[in-house]
Design a protein around this nucleic acid. Structure first.
Lengths: 219, 219
DNA sequence: ATCAATCTGACAGCAAGCTGACCGCCGCAA
DNA sequence: TTGCGGCGGTCAGCTTGCTGTCAGATTGAT
């Protein structure tokens, strides 16, 4: 698996590079966005690790441009603790996961494995569930053959269910998934997003277990 | 943790088996892919160690088929082929890690620990009891293969029994478990919930000991 | 047989969940 | 800058079905 690491901190960058290399992955490490752009113009990467503060620009607009161009390479954002709002923005911009600095290198390996596994299987694996066809890599859903567009939050939520089909997920678990960090959602946000998802995907897709949580309905 | 070792070299296989067993894991060792397929048809494994060259076929297509079927059991490849192309092919096929022979047994233990940790919380241990299959993490119960849905209270109660299989639990103990704090349960709530559980799970699951309490029936 | 303990069907109160509506915010375009 | 449009968090009123309670039936011990 080829990984592009975009990080200007030389100490952290070297540590991450060594960790990933130790996992048997191949890593290219750049410290600037222009170098990243150049690297991306070549053969594709399977995963990107993106720092948000770089000497020649910020990571979020960079990611946004990337996604606008149609690039669906999985991205894990590396961000410092004091950039909470950036993380939410990052999710909106199309990031797949977050790591908050300072982070445990073993956990980084785990996240990489998890994101990679999500996209494993060479072409785009299509998950069919009821009348739905889901392409996780392309972030597209067809319902009865017709395309459905989901927002960033809706995707994050739907993915959580698809990754553990049949498993019950509590609201707390889903909040952790959507907000990656213990940000304070004080209202019925999850309920609202579930409601919006159901409206788009159909009523039977997500089932409620009163007092416990939600789970993906039987296909 | 249950590990399936697929390795035709009897010397290496025995060494690996003994090493893992020494770590306190339980190992099943097969030397052929068809035996592996058979082993996998039973109850799930938490990890697979897969040799790439076996008497009745190659490991990579085997793994590819496994993944295509939706099996996400972590796989560590054991290979004598130090070729990069094989490594990449293996990882593409869905392997989580690899070891190049000859390898240090202590390192194998470390890798096993690492992969297992990565999946911690993922592989849901299944408790079988009579005709029931219970997945505590997913909060799902199958009765004679058919799903049963429990409410929040029913889960709490059932869990209390599962955590202490065979042990007698008084009504007072169960009330403490269900209501956590000294709330006032003034009626036969526990009896009612036990009744509801029995109706959903079958009559023999929870046994009454008149005047004493309840216990989980012999599976 | 008698009595206490337990079982279970029925029911209503209420908390959990649903959803339409509102509005602030951000990114984009002029 | 201003305006526009879409996303997402919050709220309020409504709906749903879980759960505690009770009463009559049943069981088991003596």
């Amino acid at each position: 698996m080829r990984i592009l690491l975009i990080e200007d901190d030389t100490v952290l960058g070297a540590a991450v590079r060594d960790q990933i290399a130790g996992d048997g992955q191949s890593v290219d490490w750049v410290t600037r966005l222009d170098a990243a752009t150049e690297a991306l113009s070549g053969t594709g990467y399977d995963l990107m690790l993106l720092d948000l503060m770089l000497p020649d620009g910020r990571g979020i607009p960079f990611l946004r441009v990337l996604r606008a161009r149609g690039d669906v390479t999985p991205v894990i954002i590396l961000t410092a603790l004091d950039q909470i709002s950036d993380r939410i923005e990052g999710l909106n911009a199309g990031a797949d996961d977050y790591m908050v600095k300072p982070f445990d290198l073993a956990e980084l390996s785990a996240r990489i494995g998890s994101v990679a596994r999500r996209y494993a299987g060479n072409p785009n694996p299509i998950i069919t569930h009821g009348g739905l066809e889901v392409d996780l890599a392309a972030r597209s859903v067809l319902r009865e053959g017709r395309p459905v567009t989901l927002t960033a939050r809706e995707w994050a939520l739907f993915e959580a269910f698809l990754q553990r089909p049949g498993q019950l997920l509590s609201k707390a678990q889903l909040e952790d998934k959507l907000y990656a960090f213990g940000s304070e959602v004080e209202s019925n946000t999850i309920e609202v997003h579930v409601s919006r998802l159901r409206k788009k995907l159909g009523a039977g897709v997500i089932e409620t277990e009163r007092g416990l949580g939600y789970r993906l309905g039987a296909g």
